[in-house]
């Protein structure tokens, strides 16, 4: 399985191939671990600030999907954010969050059409996908054991889907 290291730019999105997701939730674990201090599974779960995952594996009629922030072009969360914590990165198209500015008003939770932003009750701030700033790739994509998660352009993803069919 080739894991191409691609980071967010305007055309690159993280896709989930629902025909290959087996709901093992490895992406959930990897995401939480990536956002821990230790970046190590066993140690991350005993950290004082329990690391939070930023995506959720969910069921759709017998299939499953990893639901994560889509970094929307016109991001409703950015519009709704009244503390200025959420903003769009004009270069990469990423929807970024400034933890320092977040006050935990949950306006972003209220408007995210994917339910991809959740409230961390302990820290009282919203938590969302930050595209793994500490690594060259994405933790969820890199650890997906079936290759269901994929980072690339839509064309590349569609190519991958048709290739599989053959």
């Amino acid at each position: 399985m080739s894991k191409v290291k691609v980071k967010k730019d305007k055309d690159i999105t993280i896709y989930c191939d629902v025909t290959k997701c087996v709901a093992c939730r490895t992406c959930e674990l990897a995401c939480a671990v990536e956002h821990s201090k230790s970046k190590d599974l066993a140690n991350s779960i005993i950290e004082k600030d329990t690391p939070r995952k930023r995506l959720t594996v969910s069921a759709i009629n017998g299939k499953s999907i990893s639901v994560h922030c889509q970094h929307c072009k016109e991001a409703p969360c950015v519009t709704a954010c009244m503390s200025g914590a959420l903003s769009k990165d004009e270069k990469t198209g990423a929807t970024l969050q400034d933890n320092e500015k977040c006050v935990g008003c949950w306006m972003c939770v209220m408007t995210c059409p994917f339910g991809a932003i959740v409230g961390d009750s302990a820290k009282h701030i919203a938590v969302k996908c930050d595209l793994c700033p500490d690594r060259d790739d994405y933790a969820c994509v890199a650890t997906c054991p079936t290759g269901a998660l994929f980072a690339g352009t839509k064309k590349e993803f569609e190519k991958k889907l048709t290739k599989k069919k053959k």
Partner: peptide, 11 residues
């Protein structure tokens, strides 16, 4: 919006 279409590309 392309964000929605991205999620259902394989569905």
């Amino acid at each position: 919006e392309e964000e929605y279409q991205d999620t259902i590309a394989s569905y």
